[in-house]
Structures are given as C-alpha cells and as structure tokens.
Design a binder for these strands. Structure first.
Length: 841
RNA sequence: GCGAAAGUGGCGGAACUGGCAGACGCGCCAGACUUAGGAUCUGGUGGGGAAACCCUUGGGGGUUCGACUCCCCCCUUUCGCACCA
C-alpha cells in the first residue's frame, strides 16, 4: 500500500507543471482556442476560501477544456491600484508600492499552492508602468475622439479633513472619518462619454445569451432608457422658456403646474426678480443643501416653493404656476417637469399639499370619478378626456401623434433619456494612473504625446491624507513644458478611477508584453472573446458595463473587431462562515493555507466544488472538507490496489465478449462520462459532476471487492487474466476514465495516479475519455407501474421494447394483475422511461 | 412599493423537456476488523404504522393518467431597483 501524501504530491506536480511550462498558452492554428478567465484580484494581502472558490471554478473549466483538446488561455493578474493601499500608507507610512508588491507575492504563492493552472508568464499588475502606460494611451485616444472630456461637477467634500470623499465614504450625510456634515463642491473632473454608447450597450445585452438574466436586467435598469418628448413651456411675461421632459405626453392637458429642480438655471433669475429675493434664495438654498443621498433615494419629505411665476402649457394655452420642488433632479432630463397630479403619484401628493389644481385627462374604462373623488393618482393608460382635439383617443397610441404635432407647431420633439451618466474618472489620489494631460496657458488642454508615455507615477509622495491630489504637492511632477509651444505648463495631478484599469485587462492578457500597443489586433482577434468569465455578482454593473464600453471604444479605435468581450458569464456565490461574509474585521476568515497543510490542495478544491452549485452562496464546513478528503483516499486505495494489475501493457481494450457484471461496470463508466461531460461543459453543475464520480467509485469498489485480484507475486493474477481479460479491460477503462475526469478537480492526485497506472507522460498529453452511448445503455429496465397515479409494483423488462410490447408484458404480469383484481381498466399510458400508468375504476 | 429568484430529510444538496422524490456527501445508528479508533469496510437512516399500507417537496386551490416541476391565490427568505418625470 502506497501512502497518500497530498502535501508532497502538491509540491511534486506543481514543480513539474512549472518546469514543463504546462499551462503556457501560445497561438496554435491546429487547435480551437478557449479563453477562461476569473476576475483578477485586488491584492489585499490574503486570499480566503471565498476568493479561492472562484479561481477553482475557472480552473475546472480550463483543465477540462485542455483535456478536451482546446488550446486554453487561462491567465491571471492583479488589480493593483486603489484606495486601501493608499489609506494604509497614510496610516503606517508604508509606501503603497511596497505593500502592494508584497501582497501580490503572497497571494500568488497561495494560488500556486492551490494548483490553479494559470499561465503565469502572462501575469500583469495594473500598478506597473508597462500596464498603466496603456491606460494613458487609451485615455488619449478617447480624448482625441471626444470620448474623454473635462467639465465641472459636484463632489462630496469634507470641510474638516479638506478632502474629496467617494460616495461610499459618506455615511448619513457625514464624513466617515470625522463625522462632519458633507458639503458639495464643484471641481473640474474628467469624464468618459459612456452615454454615447448607451443604446449600443443596451441592445448588446440581447446578444448575451450565456449571461445570467439577472445581470442583464441590472445593466438594463442602470442604463435606464426611456422614450418620451421634450416640450417647451414659455414663461409668462418673458421671452424665456422652460424645457421639460415627459414620458407621458398623453397627459399633458392635465399638466396644471411646472416643477423645477432647485439647481435649475432659471431659479436664480426668478430669485433676482422676486419680491423678497433674500428669503426666496434662503429657501432654495435649503433645498440645495439637502443631503444628496436622501434626495436621490426619495427619503425626504416632498416640499416646494412657489416662484410666483407662470408658464404657458403649449397644448392648452393656459398659464400654469411654476414651483421649485426638492424632489426634482437637476441631472435627469432637463431638470424641469410638467406636473400632472391626476396621473402621477408624486405630483398628486404635491398638488394636495399645496392646493394646486388637479385635472383628469385619462380615463380607464368604467372610471367615473371626479377630481375631488380621487384618492390617489391614476397612472394607467386609457382614453383621453378633456384633451382638446385628442379627446377620445387611446393612449399610448396617441402619443406619437401628439409628439408629431408638437414638433410641427415648433414647441417639442421626441426624445430619449438615459439614467446612465457619463463616467467621472478623476480621483484626487496618488495610487492610480496619472491622467496624461497638460494645461498650458497658451495652448489650453493638451494631451501628453504618445512617445512620452508612460507618465510615471513619482515614487515619492507625502501621504498625509489631506487636501488635493498628493501629486499636486510634487513640483517636479507638476511643472512641465507644454508639448505644443514649449512654454511652462502644469500637469494634471489627478489619477484615474481604478475601474479604468480593469476595463480592458482581459485584452492585455492576449499580448501582455507589447510595448507599443495595449495589445496587437491579431492577438485579440485570436484569443477574444473570453469564452468563460467568472466572478462576483457585485461587479454586475460597474466592471462588466465599463468593460463592454471599453471594448466598443477599442473597436472604434480599430484594435478589435467585436462588440462583446465576455461570451459566457458565471457569477459565483460567496462562501460564508457562521452565516456571514468572510472578512478580517469579523474574524471569520477561513485561510486556505491551513486547509492545504491539513488535507492538500485537491481535497479543498473538490470540496468547494462539491458543496453546492457554483452560483450559490455556501456555508463553510470543515466536516464537508473531510468528506472530500476521504473520497480522495478511497480513490487512492482503489487504484493503488489495482494499478499494477491493470497498468502497463498487455491489457486488451473492451471487447464484445463482456459478461453481465462487466457490462454493468462499462455501462456505469460511460453513463458517468456522459453525465460529467455535460455537467462541466454545458451546465457548469460542478457539484453533480463530483457526485457522479463518487457513484462510479462506489460501484467500482463493490466490483473490486467481488473480483479476485492478481498482481506481482500473486498467482491469481494469471487466473484473472487468462480466464477473463475483459474484467481487467473494463476495470482499466473505468479507472482511467475516473482519473481523467477527476483531473480538473484534483489535479495533483490525478497526475500521480495516472503515473501509477503506467503513463510516462503527464495529463497534459492525455485526452478526456470518449463517451460511447451504446455502452451506456441498459440491457434491461425496471418499469415502474402506477395504478391510479401511485407506484404499486415494478416489472423488469428487456430494454428497447416497443410501447405496445411494454403494455402487453406489464398487463400480463402477475403482480400487476393482483393490483387490478376486481377493477375495470379504463386507460393504460406507456410513458418514456419507460413507465406504465394504469387508470382503473 | 416594483421586479426577479428561491423555499425539498437533522444539514449541504439531487431530480435535464411533466414520469420511480430524497442521487451524492455530511451527520447519526448498528455491525465487522481491531489492543484501540475520531482509520477502514458492511448495512441502515424523510415521517407514521406490527404489518398491509398511509402521509411527505412553504400553505391552499387547479390542470393532468401522472406535478418538486405547469397555472391561480397566499406566506416566508434572499437579491436587485427604488421620487428617473
């Protein structure tokens, strides 16, 4: 008996794979390509088993596809810029580069100890100049195309810490660090014009048939396309106009007032012309000062201010009051709306509160209520009433006619609005990609010339956590000469949002050493798209949408020819411990290294795949891990017992002369091959793939125990071989198939067993077992017989009988007849399976 | 509030297009082998009942020869969206 020592096997085979360059991918026209990718990692320092699960899901896929004959690209890298490293630097003084590189080294070791089959020769880290150089390259391309632009925008600002805060750092309207109420500040920020691709990003979702529907829905909501109309209301007694956006032009005859956002440009003019401008401004200021977060989520009470002015509803010609409302958003639509209280809940509440007029203009069939009888707004479509020439028309059909009429009369047009906003990428931070722009008094905003890229991040900076971008405090960085005129100029000192880094890294893997381009078009044309992409659902919006955006931009730049980067997407569930997500602060982290020391990589890999389907959240269980370890031990003992007998030469392949028990083993083998192949390749049901393998092992154990074994020095070897070569043949076939199918899950153990079975080459040279449908078929079937819907007995029949034969044989069966005694057979159904259902009276 | 997904033994979960519910594993019980076992092997393990048999996939209806699966109502949980005009 050879002892199973997984820790030693892990080391042995990991060295072998490295020295063989077993997972190094190179373009090979002879084999179909397959690109497997897991979302790359933020180098926090330590990977816990939750992270590990995702890498192993991808690895099962990569290793299986290699055995299936694909040329697999399976790379890994590091999303290495970001706030945590910089915050740590502010606290400890340790430079972000030092801590990040140390974290990468440690986590890389963890992944290697798990035996994840990455092509480490393609490893990338976004914090290295050879990577972020191309963030800058892409930025400049986008700048040239008007897709990167600069404008003032409102940010969260803590007046005590004197710094910008991300939305996530604002807790209940106050600074997370010092508790000071947040103010907003207008800063010049760089934006990516993702809205230019809004429609394309929306329509592309329909082509992503191998994405979870949930993610597509989230992206659809995020893009938030709505079709409507832009209508111009003239301000009474003035040449000014107010533009409103509405999706319900059918209700416009019921628009009895107009509401402006507090930030609407017209508001300041109205204030200046107001009877009591100071009091008016104070009220408006109170609205503007409301916590952004609660304004956006609707947590505040709806309130308004009467401007005292009116506007002309262009359809009715009537003057309607103009109010300012705290719930109207400046950033959506035109920042102004027509209020239709009878047919909009918010407008209804507002009208009731301030006693503004309500006018019903849409009737659902049978609704006879008057305005006074309305308890709430009626928001459904219906037949128009009180709507001038449109009275009697049906909405929504009438809307296109009304829009056309508005356009013809010069006060409106059809318009599409999006909730999606342009992507603000400026960060007043050090640990990110410098934005490659220069400001010259004479030449204005100038891009850094391509040949001067990368704009390197200076190594030294003061991490005080105060004020503007740390880069602004480094004169050697800031002061440059203008590339256009050669005069003195200033560098942009903000860095890019780290989501820029992750929006194209999957393309860099195609050609990671390219010094001239982000990647060569040829390499991307070969490897892309990613065939199988897995990661956490928390990236459903940001990363996965930005990546789709970047892919289209790079398409328009001419680097790629496709639209969608990720063909199949799997969002893996988290691993919980004690019912909670693992985190350092909760102290419930399960460290993979501890598990590796105790059970080896394969038991851990097998367990996280077996415990539940990959998409599901799971609760960590030490006992479950032990069970997986026991299974591997079982496999080991089985093969250790047989390897010398069935390994090597002289064993025939499965012939036609198998007896019943041999055919049963062969049947189970091929049924298992069929199930496991489909489970991994089509359904990604990795848990049932493992359980199928367990079933096969259970059956082989029984078979093994009933089969006298030969071996060196044992005389019964010759007996078995001479008398029943088929026994050894089916056993060998079963065991080799088992090892091959186990290989994606437990690669170290599988390699060792493969060697024990007499194969000098590694599994890199092996092929996935072939499925034989004929051999998977049963000789005879047990037919359940239902009487009035309940299974009463079973009849064993030869396989492949016609339905009529089955019916005849079942009805003639003694045990069936005993259940039918004294009753009248009304109906007999033979279902596939087969199964027989008899209805009696 | 709106939308989606889910609810199956003591636990994690199977059941592919409507066809034998509970595969596989954990746990538990019994036995074998052992000086011993938290190793290994064998058997058992949804509930009730002595048995025939009955009940059982969140609850209640329905469709069907047949429902975990389809339809309607309700309950619970999780996730997403949440003043977007």
């Amino acid at each position: 008996m050879t002892e199973y020592t997984p820790q030693q096997l892990d080391k042995k085979w990991q060295h072998r794979w490295t020295s063989d360059r077993a997972f190094a991918a190179a373009i090979d026209p002879a084999r179909p390509k397959f690109y497997v990718l897991e979302m790359f990692a933020y180098p926090s320092g330590h990977a816990h088993v939750g992270h590990v699960r995702n890498y192993i899901i991808g690895d099962i896929c990569a290793r299986m596809k290699r055995l299936r004959g694909f040329n697999v690209l399976h790379p890994f890298g590091w999303d290495a810029f970001g706030l945590p490293a910089e915050n740590a630097a502010i606290k400890t003084g340790l430079h972000p580069e030092t801590s990040t590189l140390a974290n990468i080294a440690h986590m890389k070791g963890q992944l290697q100890r798990l035996g994840v089959s990455y092509d480490w020769e393609r490893e990338i880290a976004t914090c290295l100049p050879e990577y972020y150089k191309f963030n800058q390259w892409i930025f400049l391309k986008m700048f040239e195309r008007g897709l990167a632009y600069r404008r003032r925008s409102t940010v969260n600002w803590c007046p005590v810490d004197n710094t910008v805060l991300a939305n996530e750092q604002v807790v209940d309207g106050a600074c997370w660090r010092c508790g000071t109420p947040i103010v907003t500040r207008d800063l010049e920020q760089w934006f990516f014009r993702i809205t230019a691709y809004a429609d394309e990003l929306l329509q592309g979702l329909d082509t992503l048939t191998e994405w979870p529907e949930k993610v597509a829905v989230m992206q659809r909501n995020w893009i938030g396309r709505s079709e409507g109309a832009r209508i111009t209301f003239a301000v009474s007694g003035s040449a000014e106009t107010i533009e409103i956006f509405t999706t319900r032009i059918d209700t416009i005859y019921g628009a009895t007032f107009v509401l402006l956002a507090p930030e609407h440009p017209m508001v300041d003019r109205f204030a200046a012309e107001h009877a009591t401008p100071d009091a008016f401004r104070a009220q408006v200021q109170a609205f503007r000062a409301l916590d952004r977060e609660s304004r956006l989520t609707g947590a505040i009470e709806k309130e308004g201010i009467d401007t005292g002015r009116t506007a002309i509803n262009p359809f009715t010609g009537q003057a309607v009051p103009i109010w300012i409302a705290n719930f109207v958003l400046a950033e959506y639509g035109t920042g102004a709306i027509m209020a239709v209280p009878a047919h909009d809940e918010r407008d209804f509440a507002f009208a009731r509160k301030y006693q503004l007029p309500i006018r019903i203009v849409v009737r659902e069939a049978g609704d006879e209520r008057t305005e006074d009888q309305l308890g709430e707004a009626s928001t459904n479509y219906g037949q128009l009433v009180n709507s001038g020439p449109y009275t009697g028309a049906e909405a929504p059909a009438v809307m296109s006619r009304m829009i056309a009429d508005a356009a013809a009369r010069g006060f409106g047009k059809g318009e599409v609005q999006y909730r999606l906003k342009d992507w603000g990428i400026s960060r007043q931070r050090y640990w990110g990609t410098p934005i490659p722009m220069i400001y010259c008094e004479k030449d204005g905003v100038v891009g850094v010339p391509y040949e001067q890229l990368p704009v390197e991040l200076p190594k030294v900076a003061a991490f005080t956590g105060r004020g503007d971008s740390p880069l602004a405090q480094i004169p050697e960085f800031v002061n440059v000469t203008c590339p256009t005129c050669g005069g003195p100029a200033r560098r942009e000192t903000d860095t890019m949002d780290t989501f820029v880094d992750s929006s194209w890294y999957f393309l860099r893997f195609c050609d990671p050493a390219n010094a001239d381009l982000p990647f060569s078009p040829e390499s991307a044309a070969h490897w892309m798209p990613v065939d199988f992409y897995s990661g956490g659902v928390e990236h459903a919006i940001l990363h996965l949408l930005y990546s789709r955006f970047f892919t289209r931009v790079l398409r328009d730049v001419g680097l790629v020819t496709f639209d969608e980067p990720f063909k199949r997407l799997l969002t893996q569930g988290m691993v919980l411990k004690d019912g909670a997500v693992m985190s350092k602060s909760k102290g419930n982290v399960v460290d993979p290294d501890t598990m590796l020391e105790k059970y080896g990589a394969d038991a851990l890999r097998l367990y996280v795949m077996f415990v539940a389907p990959p998409e599901k959240e799971v609760e960590w269980s030490d006992a479950g891990l032990e069970g997986s370890f026991r299974f591997l031990l079982r496999v080991w003992r089985l093969i250790d017992h047989w390897c010398e007998t069935i390994g090597g030469d002289g064993i025939p392949s499965c012939g036609p002369d198998c007896n019943e028990r041999e055919r049963a083993v062969r049947r189970k083998t091929h049924q298992t091959i069929g199930r496991v192949t489909a489970d991994i390749e089509e359904r990604m049901h990795l848990n049932t793939a493992v359980s199928s393998l367990m079933e096969l092992v259970n059956e082989l154990y029984t078979f093994s125990q009933q089969t006298p074994r030969g071996g060196p020095g044992r005389e019964d070897k010759d007996v078995v071989q001479r008398e029943r070569p088929e026994t050894l043949a089916v056993l060998r076939e079963a065991i080799e198939a088992l090892v091959l199918m186990l290989a994606p899950f437990a690669p170290h153990t599988a390699e060792e067993l493969w060697q024990m079975l007499g194969h000098p080459e590694t599994l890199a040279k092996a092929s996935w077992p072939a499925y034989n449908a004929d051999w998977a078929k049963a000789d005879e079937v047990v037919v359940p017989v239902q009487v009035n819907g309940k299974v009463r007995t079973r009849v064993t029949l030869p396989a492949e009988m016609s339905d009529d034969q089955v019916r005849e044989r079942v009805l003639a069966d003694a045990s069936v007849m005993s259940h039918l005694e004294g009753k009248t057979v009304k109906k007999v159904v033979v279902a596939k399976g087969p199964l027989v259902s008899i209805v009696v009276l």
